[in-house]
Structure formats: C-alpha cells, structure tokens
Simulated assay, not measured.
Amino acid sequence: MATSSGRAILSPPDLQPAAKDDGIDVFWHEGMLKHNTGRGVFDTGMEPDFLDVLENHPENSDRVKNMVSILKRGPIALFVSWHQGRAALISELLSFHTQEYIDELVEADKKGQGKIICPGTFLNPGSWDAALLAAGTTLSAMKHILDGHGKITYALVRPPGHHAQPTQADGYCFLNNAGLAVQLALDSGLNKVAVIDIDVHYGNGTAEGFYRSNRVLTISLHMNHGSWGPSHPQNGTVDELGEDEGFGYNLNIPLPNGSGDRGYAHAMTKLVVPAVEEFRPELMVLVVGQDSSAFDPNGRQCLTMEGYRKIGQIVREMADKHSNGCLLIVQEGGYHVTYSAYCLHATLEGVLNFPAPLLPDPIAYYPEDDAFTAVVVESIKKYHKQFVPFLK
C-alpha cells in the first residue's frame, strides 16, 4: 500500500485488534514543529568552544516527526484516523493556569528574543504558538470523546505539558496539556477522571493542578528523582498524597532505576489497577512518555517495546471496565529519536489489544531484574493501605 507521497506503508501481519472496529483518532498539527529548542550540551543551551559537535536539545522536532511518520507508514497506520489540531484560546488556558502566569508567557513571546523560562526550558520565537497548538490539540482530542465521536484519542503534541504547574513552567513544559483536557471533562459534567502518567519523570504539574480535588485521581509512575530545583519543588514521593478534599487522590509510585518491563507491569497490577478499581472513573487519561525506555538519554527505567505494549493493554482493560472504553492518550517525553517512535507504536498496539506484536523490537532484549522493584511496590502498597482513605 502506498501513501499520497508515494512512500510505502509497511504491510502489517495478518492481525486485527481484539475488537474489529477498534481504531485510534490521532490529533496533530505540524505547527508544533516550529518550537525550536536549539543546540548545545544536552538541555543546557551551553555552547562551549571546546566541543566540535553540539547536539540538539533532547526535546526537538525530530523525535515527534518520527512519531508522526511511524503512525502514518507503520503497520498500525490502517487503524489510525487523523484529525487537524488547533490553537487554544487564552481564555481556555485559565481553566488550569493563572492569568498572571499566562500574561508572563505572552509578554515574553512578544519580545521575540528568546528567553530561558527555567533550566532547560526555552521560549524562542515560535515556541508560544506551538504551545498554544499543543494545548488546543489536546483539548480537541478530549472534546472528540466528550461529544461521542470516538472513544480512543491520542494527542500527539509538543512541547510537552505535565510539568507545567498552574503558576509556572518546568521541565520543557509551558502549558499543561493533559491538565487542561481533564478540566474540560470536569467542566463538561464528568465527576471522576483518572490520570495515569508513565513518563519517566513525576507529573508534578498535573498533580499540583488537582492536588485538592477528589474528582481527579492522579497516578504517576516515575524514576525516583526527587526535586530538581525551584521550578520542580515536588519530590514525587509516596507521602505527597494531596490536600484537603484531594487527600489520597494523588498517588506517586517512585520506582527504582532499571525497573524494566516486569517491574512496571507488577506496579500497574498491584498498585494502579486496584486504585482505579476503587475510584471508578468515568474517563481515563494515559499520559505517555517514552523516556522510560531502556535507551532514552533522559531516563533509566529500561522499558522495552514489550513493556509499553503491556501497559497499553492494562490501561485499555481498565478503560473498558470503568469508562465505557473512553481513553485519552497525551504525548509527553521520549528523547531517543528512533526508539521513542517504536515504543509509541507498541503502546498503541497494546491499547488496541492486538494478539501479537505488529513490529519487532529493533534493539531487542535488555536484561532486567525486577526483584528490587517488587519489594518497593509492596512497600508502597502497604503505605497506601495505611494512609489513603479510599484504599483502606
């Protein structure tokens, strides 16, 4: 099969999703590629004169170009429907962010000179327009579900968003795409939304936005990295459970470095599934970051395609059971330009419940030992039983 560009789509194996009418509605806008994060030493922007070769900032457009192309020309392409994204209105941003913070970003963009908003996070010419497109595209993906036009949508967006807090940017993120979409669901009449974040870093911005709400269950599986400064004051530890009515509805699952496929599956089964079972959400949101992979320059969690595929299957099963199959997937990190695209493909294969992989793993086997992870998961489970009211 050929595309309009004349480039061939890989012929998929003779496989179908578990439900034959299954598919994924992907929301995307190429204007998000105009966010230029620059070059230097990793994400610092530094250009020392003693290096001949500088690298792209890890959050660059190439990583997302590969995600787009693998969904258009990879085996899963036959099960993907494409939708044009849009820019968010300033008024829409105020459902999650403060007016003062948005005004700061608008003013910084007007100067047109580029600005370091916080370490590693650069607002250059074109960045604000891309951020508005990322937010609006995610809102469109959510509205597609809310309006009954589809059940599984994927917001393929950048810059990422899950570190952006109501009042400040953080970790390459300006606007909290997932948080805005969740708030839209609540404002549209839903009472309970569950957010599962598997990016390698703590989804601190999303957690902060709903920290005092019992209508949103935020669950973050991340490496145990702690705070990295004023822009990221949260530690992501198990005792950050929420406040006031939201106490117990923010569940952090900091996992040991190198937890791997089996470790993540164990954490999902023992911690995430029981919490969602008790919470009974009307809609599920999966926040995906392929920086949890075995070969990502920004993470050390050692997930392979098989691990992502399994996570996709588990989340789909929960969505089918609790939210009539309704699932919004929002893109976050993932900085290995090639392997991130493969791991995304595997995640969506899992969400569609294919009986066997559509793509082989190009990097293949990575040794792992999940024994330590199992001990940590059991410790977190005991902590939840002791301190989280709705899990006692």
Rank of each mutant, 00 (worst) to 15 (best):
D52P: 09
Q313F: 12
F79R: 11
M284C: 07
I314Y: 06
G260Y: 00
I196N: 04
G289C: 10
V285P: 01
L71I: 07
G112F: 07
G333T: 00
M46V: 13
T138M: 00
H97P: 09
G334A: 03
A371T: 15
F174D: 01
F122A: 06
G258A: 03
E278G: 11
L78P: 10
N252M: 08
G136L: 01
S11I: 15
F27P: 05
G171C: 03
V273D: 09
G161K: 01
A130D: 01
G258P: 06
S91K: 15
T347S: 06
G150E: 12
G236S: 08
E378F: 02
G248E: 05
K382G: 12
P256M: 06
L123E: 04
L348N: 02
P362Y: 08
R215A: 12
R212G: 10
I196A: 09
Y202S: 03
D21T: 11
H163R: 07
V377L: 07
Y249D: 03
S340W: 01
P233E: 06
G246D: 01
G350H: 09
P13N: 12
T347A: 01
L146H: 08
M223Q: 14
L78N: 15
S227I: 00
Q16P: 00
E378W: 05
P367Q: 03
F279P: 02
G209N: 04
S293R: 00
L71Y: 09
V337Q: 14
S81A: 15
R158W: 08
A374I: 14
G248D: 10
Y172Q: 11
G312Y: 05
A77T: 05
V216C: 06
N298E: 15
S188T: 11
E100L: 12
D197G: 02
P58C: 08
D147G: 12
E30A: 15
H266I: 06
P12I: 09
G85L: 03
V272L: 07
A87L: 13
E92Q: 14
E332H: 00
N36V: 12
V287D: 11
E243H: 10
Q165W: 05
L328G: 07
F96E: 05
A346M: 06
N204L: 00
W128R: 07
P274R: 04
E92I: 03
K143N: 14
M223I: 12
V330T: 05
S81I: 14
D21Y: 10
